[in-house]
């Protein structure tokens, strides 16, 4: 195994340490990191943290207000809302992770193709991106749900298809700007093929900004999942999702507002967390936007 030169290792350690230090010094960034960790850890360890089985009917009295036994109260079927909120976090993060991973992969591949390929391919892919983006997400979801039925996979599919054009367009633009740079021309002159140029030289330069964008897209994806579940087009009952908790609670909001509040809190927390963290990361990795410059 080749040994990493000491100077190089020190540089990376220093850079990572610097970035982490910058993140910790940014109050909103730190708050975002804490909130994101809170949501991620509670979702990862939901099985240990949740005080009750989130699916168990009549775990307590129905529509009970918050108490020591049920911190967030119970829903119309007597299920513990805190346990359902924690379990709902798993669904939200599963959707977010799967969707963004798939959308990034497809978006990068199609964006590189459009940016580096022949003009006709670029035009064709642009037409495809615009066609997909022209469908409002909810209307598109309605059509897909009618065809495939509501499920977690349908939600992931809908949000992935809607997100791909956003990433693909950014990658395309960056690729087009980069493909005429001298170092790419030199590489080509030395006989490098398109795959090597795209994979080794262009991809590493476009992927950084995309990752920051993806982190800021997490709350958006979670909100779309919650919205679809609220409309009954998301996960199947009795699987808890923040959207279904809101929908169930909405029916009893007049006398029992706590299910709606409990279902809304994690959406607010995750939105703020990922937004603050994403903004802080953007400030760190894009010096032009640094507040201290």
């Amino acid at each position: 195994m080749a040994e990493v030169p000491a100077a190089g290792r020190r540089f990376r350690e220093t850079a990572l340490g610097q970035h982490l230090g910058q993140l910790l010094r940014d109050q909103l960034g730190l708050l975002g990191l804490v909130l994101v960790l809170l949501v991620v850890l509670s979702a990862l360890f939901a099985g240990w943290i949740a005080p009750y089985d989130p699916l168990k009917i009549y775990a307590g009295p129905r529509l009970a207000p918050p108490s020591w036994e049920h911190w967030f109260g119970t829903d119309h079927l007597g299920r513990d809302i805190l346990s359902r909120v924690i379990a709902g976090g798993q669904v939200a993060l599963q959707v977010a992770a799967a969707t963004i991973a798939a959308a990034l992969t497809l978006g990068i591949a199609l964006g590189l193709l459009a940016g580096y390929g022949p003009e006709w391919l670029d035009n064709l892919l642009l037409l495809l991106f615009d066609a997909v983006r022209s469908f409002p997400v909810i209307i598109f979801a309605l059509a897909v749900v009618t065809l495939l039925g509501p499920s977690l996979y349908t939600v992931i599919l809908v949000v992935t298809i809607s997100s791909v054009p956003i990433y693909a367009r950014i990658v395309r633009t960056q690729t087009q700007a980069m493909k005429h740079n001298e170092f790419i021309l030199a590489e080509r002159a030395m006989g490098a093929g398109p795959l090597r140029i795209l994979g080794v030289h262009i991809l590493p330069n476009v992927v950084g900004p995309l990752l920051i964008l993806a982190s800021m897209d997490v709350p958006l994806v979670i909100a779309v999942e919650a919205g679809l579940s609220f409309l009954g087009m998301g996960v199947r009952p009795p699987t808890p999702s923040w959207g279904t908790i809101l929908n169930d609670g909405y029916n009893y909001i007049r006398n029992s507002p706590w299910p709606v509040i409990a279902g809304g809190i994690p959406i607010v927390v995750v939105t703020l967390g990922f937004t603050f963290l994403g903004e802080a990361l953007r400030d760190i990795f894009d010096p032009k936007l640094r507040k201290d410059l």
Binding site: I57, L142, P150, M233, P238
Partner: peptide, 20 residues
């Protein structure tokens, strides 16, 4: 959901499909 839970008690695994 309640029927799903009742059928689960006798050993049937029911998946609910919600339709608009």
């Amino acid at each position: 959901e309640v029927i799903q839970a009742q059928l689960a008690q006798i050993g049937l695994d029911v998946q609910i499909n919600v339709q608009d």
